[in-house]
Structure formats: C-alpha cells, structure tokens
C-alpha cells in the first residue's frame, strides 16, 4: 500500500500519523482526521482515504460517504489560490452574481469549471461568510474584499497571479 506514495506525500503521512496518535481514544475522530489530511495534502487523494480507513478502522465506504457529504472536502487537486465568492442573501441583493460573472471572465473559467487549467486559481461559492455589512464580498486565501463591483475584480486577482 505504502508503495503508492511519493516522498513528499510520505512526509505528510508521517505528520498525519502523529495527529492520529494524538487523537487516540477520542470518539468520532473521522472528520478532524480528514480535515488534517486535507490541510497536509491540499486535497484528499483516494489512496489517503484508503490509508485513513485502515488506520482508524472505519470502512472506506463510510469515509467516502462523509467526504462527499461535506462541501469542505475535495477529491481533486485545487488551485494555489482559493477564491470564495459569497452568495449570501445580503450579497445576492447587492449584486454578487455580477461579481461572480466577472471572476469567471477574468479567470477564463468556462462552463461549470472551478479550477483554472494551470492550477493557479480555484473559484468556489460560499453561502455566507458573515461580513454582510461589506456585501458583496469575496475572499482570496482568507483575505476578505468587500463592497465589490465588477470593475474591482481584475485588480484584486492580479495580485495573486
């Protein structure tokens, strides 16, 4: 099983093992373990899910069920910069969809694609980040940009290229 992992991944795996040891005896640890694994690997590759399943004795079917249930978990690699465009009610009535359209245009994301081909950006929508006073809002890697209008989007994204 271990043969499948590259060196860099093995280093992540060691850290994941340490985390698993620290959780020894804790009930309901699956979600925190998956969160840690995604932190380390950037996403959740299938071989990591199999590894976790064996390590903590939870059937892979259940692990997969949990991963695909929660929107925070990702089975495919994501871009280096993650843009989260808020689609909350306050943002919606203050023009979030025009902002979202502009982001898609700037990143040349066609159809429903979320990640750019060069893996530089991933665009996701989020239900509400709780900055409704600044609507419409988006975050890039945790930095928040508020009171957006489509004209501002290009300059903001430029900083992360």
């Amino acid at each position: 099983m271990e043969k499948k992992f590259a060196d860099r991944d093995l280093a992540c795996l060691t850290q994941l093992d340490e985390f698993l040891t620290s959780l020894e005896g804790e009930k309901g640890a699956l979600i925190p373990v998956l969160q840690k694994a995604q932190d380390l690997f950037g996403y959740l590759p299938m071989e990591v899910l199999v590894y976790i399943s064996r390590k903590i004795g939870v059937p892979i079917s259940r692990v997969y069920g949990v991963v695909t249930f929660y929107s925070q978990f990702h089975l495919v690699p994501r871009g280096r910069n993650v843009i989260r465009s808020c689609q909350g009610t306050a943002c919606h009535v203050r023009g979030a969809s025009a902002v979202m359209r502009e982001v898609r245009k700037c990143l040349e994301l066609e159809g429903g694609a979320a990640t750019t081909d060069n893996l530089r950006f991933t665009l996701e929508s989020v239900a509400c980040i709780g900055c409704c006073g600044l609507a419409p809002v988006m975050t890039v890697n945790g930095d928040t940009y508020g009171r957006l209008v489509p004209e501002k989007v290009g300059d903001i994204l430029e900083q992360y290229r």
Partner: peptide, 26 residues
Amino acid sequence: IKEGAGAFVCGEETALMASIEGRRGM
C-alpha cells in the same frame, strides 16, 4: 470544540450530533 465541515443541515440538532460523531450530518 468541533469544527464543522460545511453542511447547512448540520444546524439541525440531530444532524449536528451525527456530525460530531463523525458521520454524515443527516
């Protein structure tokens, strides 16, 4: 502290408890 993993339905109490138990939040 338990961190959620992104599911609105987990605000419902029985779903929330399922999520703390490490299951799908249904």
